[in-house]
């Protein structure tokens, strides 16, 4: 690769990287997609076979139990919980307490030190 970098011009090298890069990104994510489409059910099936020792078809492993628990229900529950939690703040005890603050004595506006008063 270093050899290529030195001896060809930059733009054509760029196109090489462009094409191979895109191909690799696609191939990586296609591999992932294919694996999770086809490989994972097989893996889960094999796992089931090993642990349960029962002969089951791949289609049976699909989540029959929680079929009705779709994303929409999850979203609804999530929203409810969120609304409930954010609502909580509104219900406050509504009890106000007035705290008495004691101040030390200060004679700055005391009436007894007026001009009229004689001590």
């Amino acid at each position: 690769m270093k050899y290529l970098l030195i001896n060809t011009d930059i733009i054509s090298e760029g196109y090489v990287i462009l094409i191979t890069g895109l191909l690799i990104v696609f191939s990586a994510l296609v591999t992932l997609a294919l694996f999770f489409k086809y490989g994972l059910p097989v893996m889960l099936y094999v796992y089931k076979v090993i642990t349960k020792r029962k002969d089951k078809k791949i289609s049976e492993i699909k989540r029959t139990a929680d079929k009705d628990f779709t994303g929409e229900i999850a979203a609804a529950i999530g929203t409810t919980v969120h609304l409930y939690l954010s609502d909580q703040h509104d219900h406050e005890s509504a009890i106000l307490t007035i705290k008495q603050v004691k101040k030390s004595y200060s004679p700055w506006s005391s009436k007894i030190y007026g001009v009229q008063n004689r001590l």
Binding site: G21, L22, V25, F26, L29, V30, L32, A33, F35, K37
Partner: peptide, 11 residues
């Protein structure tokens, strides 16, 4: 899983 391709396309 097919939505993975969209992530690749944006690259």
């Amino acid at each position: 899983p097919k939505l993975m391709l969209l992530g690749a396309a944006a690259q």
